[in-house]
């Protein structure tokens, strides 16, 4: 199973017909995101993201591991996303669904393969030890558009996370805990974010940030990933009716605006959290300009 309960014909028709008049169930515009809310837990890299009713928790962690033998200079970065019964009653525990595979693959392509996190900076000692950074995504409530929500969560987590300091002396690696030495922020080369669209009416209507019901009624999807410099990192069109090149171009420029908006929201959330930490006297010395 692991599939959402399908819409009734009446509900499906209602959504599709309403969209013909540019009306969405929740009253949003065609190119409008649901309200985005980002908050942080006590530890570095504990991010809570809410996009409308879709919500998830991202937990970042770092561990000293042995690098892959074919890439001795590289650290390891993994994204782990496991859909459990918590997010939606339709998801079975311990069984991989198509959605999970699809989301994991897209996130892998957009964040990991575009080298958003510079894994070479994670190297501690060539071929011996490196940091393994892990991003765990826990979906707590699923209401459509998991890809964008998870992407925002992971990118925020990467910017929020601090890695413990590790020093090599006489061929021995020593790792200092967060209390001993100021932890180091990760080195990001760029900040890609995805914007997901869904198509209706033979690809004539292309909708941003579909909710779960809209996703079920849609004909196809399209994912556009852009970074903060405005470069397109990836365009995915996996299922459904074809979309014209002009539409893709048009939607890409709209997606760029949205990516800038999301980037500002993330930055604001990060700044707020930083000032909160400074006030609590935790973040005072958490400044990489600090003399070691």
């Amino acid at each position: 199973m692991s599939r959402e309960v399908p819409l009734t014909t009446a509900e499906h028709d209602f959504i599709v017909e309403a969209l013909k008049r540019n009306v969405r169930l929740d009253g949003r515009g065609i190119d409008e995101l649901r309200p985005l809310n980002i908050s942080f837990g006590d530890e570095y890299g504990h991010v809570k993201v809410q996009l409308g009713h879709t919500s998830l928790i991202v937990l970042m962690s770092a561990e000293v591991v042995k690098p892959h033998s074919d890439r001795p200079f590289d650290g390891i970065f993994t994204v782990s996303l496991e859909l459990t019964n918590m997010g939606s009653p339709a998801w079975e525990n311990g069984r991989q669904s198509d959605l999970e595979q699809n989301v994991t693959r897209t996130l892998d392509r957009v964040i990991r393969h575009s080298n958003a996190l510079d894994t070479e900076t994670l190297c501690i000692m060539k071929g011996q030890s490196c940091w393994g950074i892990r991003a765990d995504v826990h979906v707590t409530n699923y209401d459509g558009n998991l890809i964008d929500c998870a992407c925002i969560g992971i990118m925020t987590g990467l910017q929020h996370f601090r890695c413990p300091d590790a020093v090599v002396k006489d061929g021995k690696v020593s790792v200092y805990s967060i209390d001993e030495r100021v932890p180091i922020p990760l080195n990001l080369t760029h900040r890609p974010l995805t914007i997901t669209f869904h198509t209706f009416h033979d690809g004539e209507l292309i909708l941003m940030d579909a909710s779960r019901k809209e996703e079920l009624a849609a004909e196809g999807d399209m994912v556009i990933a852009l970074n903060d410099a405005g470069q397109v990192c990836a365009v995915y069109k996996t299922v459904g009716r074809p979309v014209g090149a002009v539409d893709v171009m048009r939607k890409t420029s709209i997606a760029l605006q949205k990516v800038q908006e999301i980037k500002n929201t993330i930055q604001k959330a990060l700044d707020d959290d930083q000032s909160k930490r400074t006030r609590r006297n935790v973040g005072v010395e958490a400044n990489s300009a600090n003399d070691r």
Partner: peptide, 15 residues
């Protein structure tokens, strides 16, 4: 009856 528990936080980040 399906019950799911996610552990986070704590000294080792819920690990």
């Amino acid at each position: 009856i399906v019950m799911t528990l996610v552990v986070s936080g704590g000294e080792n980040g819920g690990k």
